[in-house]
Write a protein that binds this DNA or RNA. Sequence first.
DNA 1: GCGACAG
DNA 2: ATCTTGTCGC
Length: 225
Amino acid sequence: MRVGHEPPGSVAEAMAVQDRLRPLVDLVGPGPDTPATVAGLDVAYAEGDDLLAAAVTVLDAGTLAVLDSAVRVGRPTFGYVPGLFAFRELPALLDALDGLTVRPELLICDGHGLAHPRRFGLACHLGVLTGLPAIGVGKTRLVGEWTPPGPARGDGSPLRDGGEVVGRVLRTRDGVRPVFVSVGHRMSLDNACAQVLAVTPRFRLPESTRTADRLCRDALTAARR
DNA sequence: GCGACAG
DNA sequence: ATCTTGTCGC
């Protein structure tokens, strides 16, 4: 799947791009109940942010075995600015997605979706550009207020911002720090949380994110020598 | 002016 | 994200 795009030339331009694409987000979903495949996406950096590697791994949603993967080494095309984070990783991630043989049924992104100052985080951006259902899973919060969910895996509490619920703070493992789940595209929040729990049978982060993380980190190590 | 601030 | 020793806990 090839998706054309040019890096924004300024912060104002990047924000304008988000405002233009935001209306294209499908907030209804509800997304697949039992997807056959799920994809994990992640990016690793090195050389003082001058080098990066983006990876996508496609897992069998039932067994969580890796069915396909792709990794791309490149240069960041935008500085790190909270809220505009997507422009930094998007080009390389789209290139990696383009290298897949299997088209995944769901994207699980390492970052937020609607839980974003303009309601258009990385997961929304990737979802809109690929047309695929997408979920955002952040390790820390970007926006919103919340109170700790119950202590058991599956417990959750609303993430509220500006008078609306933009995501859910979800406990994926008993007694372990929760993650921040938000809708990216073509998914309901309830289903997004259900899908996240389905890929976290053993660790705090989705198995898909873990396999992608390992792949891009290995690719960086190989690229540095 | 002083914090907060996905990865 | 990444830079990094020791250290707490299972």
